[in-house]
Design a protein around this nucleic acid. Structure first.
Length: 260
DNA sequence: ATGCCTTGTCGCACAAGA
């Protein structure tokens, strides 16, 4: 089955584009980030007409995440554990049952962290520490667990067309990259790099300065698989062509094909 | 060196993104 992640940068502004991609890609499960909508404002009906169940965790104006699934969503958790005072809507998790067993799906929108020198960067690092702790607890389920989303981390220099331009950016700081590695070191497999060693593999191109036309991209949208999920890995894809559509998000869909 | 776009907001400019 096909499980995707996509930062759509506003579900209402992107609805036509999103529906076109759903019709083309037909994912079994899709994790959306930056819906920029409260729960009541999410156009669930448009996706339900395509056969999806919808669970959202939104807030007004910014952030917001959603999981869409052809199979029902069970045991829905909203918010990342570890800080009850955190009011930013950046995490939602649910279980999806398949013919071969259940999958636990975590959909995340990791804080950007810019600019350095403000409270935003330590918030990002603290959020990553909470994600590491939660990921560790999810491994104890000993079931296929997927953590998909916009990680806002460039893992390695080869994940940017011009890595030197990102040296002063929160996405490429040693502290951000170390925490991403710590996640992997828990035992998660990064699905795209496990299946794709090609250069110029990106998931985001800035709206500004002709970044798409010049292929000045970065790879910041990732899919992490628990050992039980990695054992089901058949392949991955990045629907980069969607960046060339009218009214595109600055991110493109990334997906994994599991034998589930 | 900065902004270059884009979205959403109790708009008529600004914050936030990456």
């Amino acid at each position: 089955m096909k499980i995707a992640t996509w930062n759509i940068n506003g579900v209402k502004a992107r609805l036509e584009t999103a529906l076109a991609w759903f019709a083309e890609a037909r994912p079994d499960i899709a994790c959306l980030q930056e819906i920029k909508s409260v729960d009541e404002g999410f156009p669930a009906g448009a996706f339900e007409e395509l056969g999806y169940h919808v669970a959202t965790h939104g807030q007004k104006g910014f952030n917001g995440v959603a999981i869409l699934s052809r199979q029902p969503l069970e045991d829905i958790r909203r918010g990342l554990p570890g800080d009850d005072s955190d009011e930013q809507a950046r995490y939602i998790e649910a279980t999806v049952s398949t013919a071969t067993g259940a999958l636990r799906i975590g959909c995340l929108y990791l804080p950007n962290g810019n600019p350095l020198g403000t409270e935003k960067f330590p918030y990002k690092l603290a959020w990553m520490d909470r994600l590491i702790a939660h990921a560790r607890s999810q491994l104890e389920l000993e079931m296929p667990v997927l953590l998909l989303g916009d990680y806002n981390v460039i893992p390695e220099p080869r994940d940017a067309r011009t890595p030197q331009d990102w040296l002063g950016d929160a996405l490429f700081q040693p502290e951000s990259r170390a925490r991403f590695r710590a996640l992997l070191n828990l035992g998660f497999t990064e699905a795209v790099r496990a299946t794709n060693d090609r250069p110029d593999t990106y998931t985001f191109w800035d709206y500004q300065a002709g970044a798409w036309q010049r292929n000045n991209g970065i790879r910041i949208d990732h899919i992490l698989l628990s050992p039980q999920a990695a054992d089901l890995l058949r392949g991955t894809g990045i629907d980069a062509h969607v960046r060339g559509w009218d009214k595109p998000s600055d991110h493109v869909p990334v997906w994994v094909d599991l034998a589930a």
